[in-house]
């Protein structure tokens, strides 16, 4: 048998090279990433355009004046305040409820555990419109008038799962031995909780809370059904999307929304940079 036929049993020359992707794969990946990001860059570009009647590209000129106009807009500011208010309070509720659920479920195994896990995920897994209408008609049946609180209750319901996912992932990787060790060294339960468990969970809770904030801050569907006459920033944005009346203002608000959601997301991935806590599939 000639040597050629044995070639495939030799240590392969074509061995899978981690450094070298084929050109088409590289191109595919680059095009994909560009596809994900060019639209966001465009919005930033449009915030500076002098054109205010259409979405003309390339912009005929550049100006900063829309930013100063937005700064003076009372209606936008009150929408921003409402959105931040709602996001802060519902994140707070989601942190408490999500952490408790994670603490109960991460290790225990009991009848019905699967159903409870499903129940936690369901508000985000089902289409927002179903969650929204359900809550809306429930408020109607019980006779709760729409207020900031009806939005907050709705948001906390679907933000819980984000905190839950982050904390559960952290708890699974935390050794139970350190709790035992703390107890053996004479700490009582409260000391163990505050000095050992909480610092361990800290960044996971923080990251979960950040993502919950970002999620609540730009949620629009459930909000549409549970806000009554109130205008959060996404609801303002949606009305402009349906009937564009103030294009340049909308562009600037969009940039503002990008900034205010990017900060918590970047921070969340920064505090958990050495772990794999933030699972995208959790959204």
């Amino acid at each position: 048998m000639s040597q050629k036929n044995w070639g495939h049993l030799m240590p392969s020359k074509k061995a899978f090279n981690l450094k070298k992707a084929s050109l088409s794969l590289k191109l595919g990946a680059i095009i994909g990433i560009l596809f994900l990001h060019i639209p966001l860059f465009l919005i930033i570009l449009y915030a500076f355009t002098t054109e205010d009647k259409s979405y003309q590209f390339p912009p005929p000129g550049y100006t900063l004046k829309w930013f100063s106009i937005v700064l003076g807009r009372e209606d936008i500011w009150s929408a921003v305040y409402l959105s931040i208010h709602v996001a802060l309070v519902s994140t707070f509720a989601a942190i408490i409820l999500g952490t408790l659920a994670a603490a109960a479920l991460y290790k225990a195994d009991f009848f019905g555990k699967q159903s409870i896990t499903l129940l936690i995920i369901l508000p985000i897994a089902l289409p927002g419109i179903i969650t929204g209408i359900s809550l809306r008609s429930a408020y109607g049946v019980v006779g709760i008038p729409f207020s900031t609180w009806t939005i907050i209750i709705s948001h906390a319901t679907f933000c819980m799962v984000v905190v839950y996912n982050n904390v559960v992932a952290r708890l699974r990787r935390t050794s139970p031995n350190i709790i035992q060790a703390s107890m053996d060294l004479g700490a009582n339960n409260f000391q163990t909780f505050f000095y050992i468990i909480l610092p361990n969970l800290g960044t996971a809770i923080l990251a979960g809370g950040m993502l919950a904030f970002a999620l609540s801050f730009d949620e629009v569907i459930v909000t549409t059904f549970t806000a009554g006459q109130q205008t959060t920033l996404p609801i303002w944005m949606l009305s402009e999307l349906i009937r564009p009346r103030q294009r340049p203002i909308t562009n600037v608000v969009a940039v503002f929304i990008i900034c205010i959601t990017f900060i918590p997301i970047l921070y969340a991935s920064y505090v958990t940079r050495n772990t794999t806590d933030i699972e995208g599939s959790s959204k």
Binding site: I33, L36, H37, P39, L40, L42, I43, Y46, S54, Y55, Q56, F57, L211, A214, L215, F217, D218, V220, P234, M237, L238, L241, P244, T250, A254, I257, I258, T261, F262, I265, L266, S269, I278, G280, K283
Partner: peptide, 27 residues
């Protein structure tokens, strides 16, 4: 990060960006 940022950033803003892109006078 390049995947997480769009994932978590505003759904409405991202829809809006396509209104800019697909417009007759758009990019």
């Amino acid at each position: 990060l390049a995947i997480m940022l769009p994932l978590w950033s505003s759904y409405l803003v991202r829809v809006y960006s396509w209104k800019l892109i697909l417009a007759k006078e758009g990019i």
